[in-house]
Amino acid sequence: MSIQHFRVALIPFFAAFCLPVFAHPETLVKVKDAEDQLGARVGYIELDLNSGKILESFRPEERFPMMSTFKVLLCGAVLSRVDAGQEQLGRRIHYSQNDLVEYSPVTEKHLTDGMTVRELCSAAITMSDNTAANLLLTTIGGPKELTAFLHNMGDHVTRLDRWEPELNEAIPNDERDTTMPAAMATTLRKLLTGELLTLASRQQLIDWMEADKVAGPLLRSALPAGWFIADKSGAGERGSRGIIAALGPDGKPSRIVVIYTTGSQATMDERNRQIAEIGASLIKHW
């Protein structure tokens, strides 16, 4: 067993022997301040990774656009098919120029040779490549099948209805392509620590998230040296922004954090800054 596999296998073990965790309302004060600064709703939840206990939450059962955070769930569904012998990570998928959609920095470079399922998941999570996500959605049967996968996990809230990039439209009061912070946090925890996926697939999923290259201005910008984070960000229309993450000190994750916002007129930089400040408060009061 590799060191990384050992780390993920012992996530519940280490967490069980940690000192009790206590909620700190100071972080919620910052979440509410972010709402004021952005002029928009902000949803927040913080779960203990081992027990699933909610440590703090704000608007945990209000719907927010998922945006690209759905790509972690998508690759979880792909990995479940791999575990069941219905898919192979090494299978190569070929596609054409007509398949390319807006923001496809990886797939646009491989029109000639195609990409493997493993490479597509890596591109979808680490670079948020939209064509990679659409190609992977095709392998599982489309958005409705991802929703069905989530329902089978016990998540009857999260739903995907459309493809990239239309799913980022974020129309107010439109339930399409949305989740709730509580539902997303619980589902992410199941994917990373539950028995739904094999140990190898859980490790692969967290490795992809740990290698995320496009979430630097968010929670990662607030992390002290030595902290662990595996995350996936999302951005959408109407001032929408979000991030889902597993993080913790001492090089291992111990909490799940989900943050979503929508309806702001603020710039992307300002949305990023507010999420980073929430992260800084979380870490300060850990």
Rank of each mutant, 00 (worst) to 15 (best):
M1I: 07
H5M: 15
R7V: 08
V8S: 15
A9H: 12
P12N: 12
F14L: 09
F17A: 10
F17S: 08
L19C: 15
L19A: 15
P20E: 12
V21E: 05
F22M: 10
A23S: 08
P25Y: 09
T27W: 02
V29R: 09
V29E: 14
V31N: 02
V31Q: 01
K32Y: 09
A34K: 04
A34V: 13
A34L: 08
A34E: 03
E35F: 02
D36H: 10
G39V: 10
A40V: 06
V42Q: 01
V42R: 00
Y44C: 03
I45K: 01
D48Y: 04
L49T: 08
S51K: 09
G52M: 06
K53E: 12
K53H: 13
K53M: 13
I54D: 06
L55N: 08
E56Y: 05
E56H: 08
S57F: 09
S57N: 09
S57T: 11
S57E: 13
E61F: 10
E62H: 08
R63H: 08
F64D: 00
P65A: 06
M66Q: 06
M67I: 07
M67F: 04
M67L: 09
M67S: 10
S68N: 00
T69H: 07
L73I: 14
L73R: 00
L73S: 08
L74S: 03
C75F: 06
C75M: 06
C75G: 09
G76I: 05
G76S: 11
R81I: 06
R81A: 10
V82I: 11
D83Q: 09
D83K: 04
D83V: 03
A84S: 12
A84H: 12
Q86H: 13
I93A: 04
Y95K: 01
S96Q: 12
S96W: 12
S96N: 14
Q97T: 13
Q97S: 14
N98F: 15
D99N: 09
D99Q: 13
L100H: 04
E102L: 10
S104Y: 03
S104D: 02
S104K: 02
P105W: 04
P105C: 04
P105H: 06
V106S: 08
T107S: 11
E108Q: 10
L111K: 08
L111R: 08
T112G: 13
D113M: 10
G114Q: 04
G114C: 04
M115D: 01
V117W: 01
V117K: 01
V117I: 13
E119A: 10
E119D: 13
E119F: 02
E119Q: 15
E119S: 08
S122T: 09
S122L: 15
S122M: 15
A123I: 04
I125N: 03
I125M: 11
T126Q: 09
M127I: 09
D129C: 01
T131F: 05
T131I: 01
A133F: 02
L136C: 04
L136T: 04
L137C: 06
L137G: 04
T138C: 12
I140A: 07
G141V: 04
L146C: 05
T147Q: 09
A148R: 15
L150S: 06
L150Y: 08
L150V: 12
H151K: 15
H151A: 14
M153N: 10
G154L: 05
G154D: 08
D155L: 01
D155Y: 01
D155I: 01
D155T: 01
R159V: 07
R162P: 01
R162T: 08
R162D: 09
R162V: 02
W163T: 10
W163M: 13
E164A: 00
P165S: 07
L167H: 03
L167W: 01
E169R: 11
E169K: 13
I171N: 15
P172R: 11
P172T: 12
P172N: 10
D174F: 03
D174P: 04
E175S: 12
R176W: 07
M180N: 13
M180L: 09
A182M: 15
A182C: 13
A183S: 11
L188A: 07
L188I: 12
R189G: 12
K190D: 15
L191R: 00
L191M: 14
L192F: 12
L192V: 10
T193P: 01
L197T: 05
L197Q: 05
T198C: 10
T198F: 07
L199V: 15
A200W: 07
S201F: 04
S201P: 03
R202Y: 05
Q203T: 14
Q204W: 06
L205N: 01
L205C: 03
I206L: 15
I206K: 12
I206M: 14
I206N: 08
W208Y: 06
E210I: 15
A211Y: 08
A211C: 13
D212Q: 07
D212C: 04
K213A: 15
A215Q: 05
G216Y: 08
L218Y: 03
L219N: 03
L219I: 14
R220S: 04
S221V: 11
A222N: 14
A222E: 13
A222Q: 14
L223W: 03
A225E: 14
A225H: 14
A225I: 13
G226E: 10
W227G: 02
F228Y: 13
D231Y: 04
S233C: 02
G234K: 00
G234D: 00
A235Q: 04
E237S: 15
E237T: 11
R238F: 14
S240C: 08
A245Y: 01
A245G: 09
A246W: 06
A246H: 04
L247W: 07
G248N: 03
P249Q: 09
G251W: 07
P253F: 09
R255Y: 02
V257C: 07
V258A: 09
I259N: 01
T261H: 06
G263Q: 07
G263H: 07
S264F: 04
T267S: 13
T267Q: 13
M268A: 09
D269N: 12
D269S: 13
E270T: 14
Q274H: 12
I275A: 02
I275P: 00
E277F: 08
E277P: 02
G279S: 10
A280F: 10
A280V: 14
A280K: 15
S281D: 08
S281T: 14
L282R: 01
I283G: 04
I283L: 10
H285I: 04
W286M: 07
